[in-house]
């Protein structure tokens, strides 16, 4: 057997791949579901915190800044482990899926709050004053004048950050989430062959390569 054939037999084994590709596809579904939940809840929470921060209540803002700093400083895997292995001690038993979702949503919340807030503060004060002088209330000014402009500035950094955090769904495999990597790893130990990992890697590329290229396009378009 030549070198290439042995390599193909090991990493691109057709028999093993045929046996396990449905698992990988199921994993892909879980990854997409997890990623969608993280993006929606993380961005919504981040925007909510940034809006709350614009009301300028000092104690509230200190709390927001602390929470944001906390989830920017902690490694996502540490948060996942803390929730998954820590909470059961007080009889709260979150699944691996919920632990991963919650952790990465909190991380995205922190990063996106920071970006949204930077966007809001980048709008000149005069715009607030002008809008208020036309009779708009604080909330109306924020919603109709400030946010539409602020969100436009935040799109490039937000896109890249969201992509980076969404890739963290692979961390779920550490707490037994059956996403792509989790499925691939258990298939490898069942089949004694690494081909499922090759399939899993391909699944990640299929999922994230278009997203990364999209991010590159967004960055050029909005600069």
């Amino acid at each position: 057997m030549g070198g290439w054939e042995r390599f193909a037999e090991t990493f691109l084994n057709a028999k093993v791949m045929e046996r396990y590709w449905p698992d990988i596809v199921a994993g892909l579904g879980t990854t997409i579901e997890l990623a969608a939940l993280i993006v929606l809840s993380g961005l919504a929470a981040g925007l909510a915190l940034a809006v709350l921060r614009s009301f300028g209540v000092r104690v509230v803002n200190w709390a927001i800044v602390f929470v944001v700093d906390l989830f920017r400083a902690l490694p996502p895997l540490v948060i996942i482990v803390l929730i998954y292995f820590g909470l059961p001690s007080i009889d709260v038993v979150p699944s691996g899926f919920v632990s991963t979702w919650l952790s990465l949503a909190l991380v995205l919340m922190a990063f996106s709050e920071e970006i949204f807030w930077a966007g809001i503060t980048a709008i000149p004060r005069g715009q607030w004053e002008a809008a208020r002088s036309t009779g708009l209330g604080f909330g109306e000014t924020l919603a109709h004048v400030i946010l539409p402009q602020a969100l436009r500035i935040t799109i490039p950094p937000l896109t890249n950050r969201t992509i980076a955090i969404t890739k963290g769904t692979a961390l779920g495999s550490v707490v037994a989430v059956t996403e792509i990597l989790g499925q691939a790893s258990s298939a490898v130990s069942n089949s004694y062959n690494p081909s499922p990992l090759t399939l899993g890697a391909a699944a990640y590329l299929v999922l994230f390569l278009p997203v990364v290229i999209f991010g590159r396009w967004v960055e050029r378009k909005f600069r």
Partner: peptide, 12 residues
Amino acid sequence: FRAFPPLVLLIF
């Protein structure tokens, strides 16, 4: 390598 989650690379 930006599309590849680092954990997947590491496990591979």
